[in-house]
Simulated assay, not measured.
Amino acid sequence: METERGVERGSYIWGRSVNNTRIERLWYDVTHGFGFKWKSFFLDLEVNHGLNPSIDVHIWLLHHLFLHCINDDAQEWAESWNSHDLQIRGERTRSPRDIFLFSMIQDGPRGLEQFIEPPSEPLEDPSTYGIDWDVIDNPTLMRHHLMENPEEWADRNPFAPAVQDLSDVPCEPPSCPFSPEQILYLDANLAAAVNITSRSMEVRKLVWREAFRICNEFYQ
């Protein structure tokens, strides 16, 4: 960002995630829209139905069974969110899609900034860049933020001018442990035993249990 935009413009946010409360606000909506449903589902599988998240093969099976379902939920939620009305201070209510499309007409297409000299924008205090003060003043949203980001508040120097370490969330996909023939066998037997197209979380629980049983057979 500094290469494209120039230095000392606040283009790169370095600090607590409270400096990006807009995305924190969106995460709140995502969690309540569909994320919490899947979190509860996976916790139930772990507590009651044999899931061990430290075993790569179990993670592979989760991906194989449910990753496309999560992606479908995310896409459906995004379509709904892009069409919902936003309360904009001093303006009429508009949807994100409406704002995007009319802005393209009014301001021109996005993505060409690297070919255009960036405008000079005065920035008095880069440390406050990205903070949405409406979110800061909302106790419900801030409670969610503090709950989801405990590492920023517990056992740390509250007077530190910047983050003391960077978040590292490795997301290496697990390797498939089975042959193509075994996967075909797994999918065929699952389809015969349970409704694999159901969106009911109770039925999906049955999908996991049956898949777990079949995979166990492969090792016997």
Score class of each variant (00 low, 15 high):
Met1His: 05
Thr3Glu: 15
Glu4Ser: 04
Gly6Lys: 03
Ser11Leu: 00
Tyr12Trp: 10
Ile13Trp: 06
Trp14Phe: 14
Val18Phe: 14
Thr21Trp: 13
Arg25Tyr: 14
Arg25Phe: 13
Leu26Ile: 13
Trp27Thr: 03
Tyr28His: 15
Tyr28Met: 05
Gly33Thr: 06
Gly33Met: 05
Gly33Trp: 08
Gly35Ala: 09
Gly35Ile: 11
Lys37Gly: 02
Lys37Asn: 10
Trp38Arg: 01
Lys39Ala: 11
Lys39Gly: 07
Ser40Cys: 08
Phe41Ile: 10
Asp44Glu: 13
Leu45Asn: 07
Asn48Cys: 08
Gly50Lys: 01
Ile55Leu: 08
Leu62Phe: 11
Leu65Tyr: 11
His68Lys: 02
Cys69Val: 04
Glu76His: 09
Trp81Ile: 02
Asn82Thr: 00
Gln87Thr: 10
Ile88Pro: 10
Glu91Tyr: 14
Arg94Pro: 01
Phe100Trp: 15
Leu101Lys: 08
Phe102Ser: 13
Met104Ala: 07
Gln106Leu: 07
Gly108Ala: 04
Gly111Arg: 08
Phe115Trp: 13
Glu117Pro: 02
Pro118Ile: 02
Pro119Ser: 03
Pro119Glu: 12
Ser120Glu: 15
Glu121Thr: 14
Glu124His: 05
Ser127Trp: 11
Tyr129Ser: 05
Trp133Tyr: 14
Asp134Leu: 03
Val135Arg: 06
Ile136Asp: 07
Asn138Ala: 01
Pro139Arg: 03
Pro139Phe: 02
Thr140Val: 10
Leu146Thr: 14
Met147Asn: 12
Asn149Arg: 14
Asn149Thr: 15
Asn149Met: 11
Asn149His: 15
Glu151Pro: 00
Ala154Met: 04
Asn157Arg: 02
Pro158Asn: 00
Pro158Gln: 03
Ala160Asp: 15
Ala162Val: 13
Ser167Arg: 03
Pro177Ser: 01
Ser179Gln: 11
Glu181Gly: 03
Glu181Leu: 07
Asp187His: 01
Ala188Pro: 01
Ala188Met: 04
Val194Pro: 06
Thr197Trp: 06
Arg199Asp: 14
Arg199Ala: 04
Arg199Phe: 06
Arg199Val: 10
Met201Cys: 02
Met201Ala: 01
Arg209Leu: 08
Arg209Asp: 13
Glu210Gln: 11
Ala211Leu: 06
Arg213Glu: 04
Phe218Pro: 11
